[in-house]
Nucleic acid binder design. Structure first.
Lengths: 341, 341
DNA sequence: TTGTAAGCGTTATCAC
DNA sequence: GTGATAACGCTTACAA
């Protein structure tokens, strides 16, 4: 089983030039009118000696690496894991591979990762940014490296993005709560500076406004998309006078934290508290109480991100034409919201 | 902002040879006794022109790509997502990057991915195999490419692996159930041919045997690590005579399916049915009933996989010395198991 | 129908 | 202290 890893060796074994071997192996046999028999011999030898072209060498020559980079803040969050999976699948179809990077929601890490990926000569980057600063991203994009931002985008900045319609999602959630009779609605948020968070909160406020309900800033709290945050803030909410009758959780992780706290406090959902949460998960239905959620189109987001990215990579679209897409969310009513008086 | 992407250009701007520039940039300045001032100039110019070495070219020369490949069956399964994250983090510390591949639990895809990764010249591969065949893996390993198998390993085969002690985990789960008075214990399994599944079932049977409980093969059912499978099998279990008083679920996804079915059937956990499940998840505690689980050391598994892999990559260890590691599991008692008469 | 040779951007060997 | 130059394995003009 003498594996051959070098086109030169293969060519010399075959008594052919590397050119011919390369052409056959790249499917350019007929283009260069290489004889049937030669082609056969090459293909068989390649199989026999288990030869696969060295992509590194090929890339150096062609400046195509067939790789793209993905930077996400937290792979252990199923929201991002699902998106990553969707992206991987889409890339596979195009015969591209994925270099996966986790920024741990850290701006400095993210910054370094972009440069790292660029040194690996990825042909494009899909990034769910930490969400606060964006200069490092734009700079790289202007360099000519195709990039698409997902989830946490930057408004009014020339960067292609795919995100959910978080504003509408926030409005839908709160309108639903209001339609069920709730007026005192708290909002436990994630990273306040991040755009999805902002828009969800804006949607929340708009819904209240449209329904003539006064906004109480003291029950818009929290600072992180985590279980811990949901847990803490809920305890705070129920230690104040006039606690809410409903909570709008801005992510699945926050929602879990709320459940934890609510049980500790000894309340029942939805009897004592109604709950609605952003992010549908496979387990949302099987939680303590089946949770009413706002579902984002994760798979679609991944698919579109790749689509749009390749529009730039394949130069179907000029770099200064910016794609901006907001995907509709939908609401999945379950048992966690109760109708009150 | 004229970015320079070529060491030649940078060298000519500096009026130095590429050799010198390369040496300085690779931290070999003092080794070659390059003057302080020259080093300074190089470093500053690199920064000024935003120069980063082309890793593709470097790799071709050094045959080091600083990448490793990861193949997992399903990134949307949080068990694998957590492991992937742990691996990514470990690699980052070593300044390596990760090419992530999802095999969709498909043997043919897995086969192709191994060759693909090898053509990308990854320096090693960590793989959670589909779990049935292994020749393609061994063949590649024998080629000299370092590989480590995680989770679904192959017994009595010369391949390094890191997995959980599934046998012990299975025994622990069932012993716990038995200690709570259960005798009629069903087992809903995942992929029957996969080794973790086998060993969990073996542990299950051993525990029964040791306690003088007869094994009823008709209540060891299922074929997939999925919600759907858990759901279906539970319905089947409760359509037969003499249904179980407890179920041992062999994965978190299966557990969710069981919950779904149990609710439909109108049973209560743990009143009418006790449930214990493999795989601890962040949400295990917040499910319909807080679920008693067998926790696997996912983070540790990822960490060790990388550790062991680098023992081969760095040739600290001969390729024919095989590392085999089984990590202890632990049991997290919650409310889903009831003590019966 | 096939082959020769240049060149992709590095690093490493040898030379000065 | 610094520099020419070969080589890594491939693709691709250009030749024949």
């Amino acid at each position: 089983m003498n594996n051959v890893t070098d086109i030169n060796k293969l060519a010399s074994i075959l008594n052919l030039s590397v050119t011919t071997v390369s052409r056959v192996l790249n499917g350019k046999g007929k283009k260069y009118r290489i004889s049937q028999s030669t082609s056969q011999r090459v293909i068989e030898a390649a199989k026999k000696y288990n030869y696969t072209p060295n992509r590194i060498a090929r890339s150096l020559k062609t400046s195509k690496t067939d790789t793209i980079g993905l930077i996400i803040p937290d792979l252990s969050n199923p929201f991002f894991a699902d998106i990553a999976l969707s992206i991987e699948k889409e890339l596979r179809i195009r015969e591209y591979s994925l270099i996966l990077c986790d920024s741990s929601d850290d701006y400095n890490v993210e910054r370094a990762l972009i440069n790292l990926l660029s040194s690996y000569k990825v042909e494009g980057i899909i990034i769910a940014p930490v969400g606060t600063k964006h200069n490092h991203i734009i700079d790289k994009y202007k360099t000519g490296l195709p990039m698409v931002v997902i989830d946490r985008y930057f408004p009014n900045i020339d960067l292609p993005y795919i995100t959910s319609d978080n504003y509408q999602g926030g409005m839908d959630a709160v309108n639903y709560l209001i339609s069920m009779g709730h007026k005192r609605i708290a909002c436990i948020q994630g990273i306040p500076q991040s755009q999805p968070n902002r828009e969800r909160v804006d949607g929340y406020m708009e819904a209240l406004k449209q329904n003539g309900i006064e906004i109480d800033e003291s029950i818009i709290i929290g600072h992180e998309f985590s279980i811990e945050n949901g847990y803490r803030q809920t305890h705070i909410l129920f230690s104040i006078d006039n606690p809410p009758t409903a909570i709008f959780a801005l992510s699945n992780l926050i929602c879990l934290g709320i459940i934890k706290a609510v049980k500790e406090i000894g309340l029942k959902i939805p009897d004592d508290l109604s709950l609605i949460s952003f992010d549908e998960q496979p387990y949302s239905e099987y939680l303590w109480v089946p949770i009413t959620t706002i579902r984002q189109k994760k798979k679609e987001m991944g698919r579109l991100a790749v689509d749009v990215l390749f529009n730039y990579i394949d130069n179907k679209v000029p770099n200064d034409k910016i794609f901006n897409i907001k995907l509709k969310t939908d609401i999945i009513p379950r048992d966690s919201v109760r109708r009150i008086n």
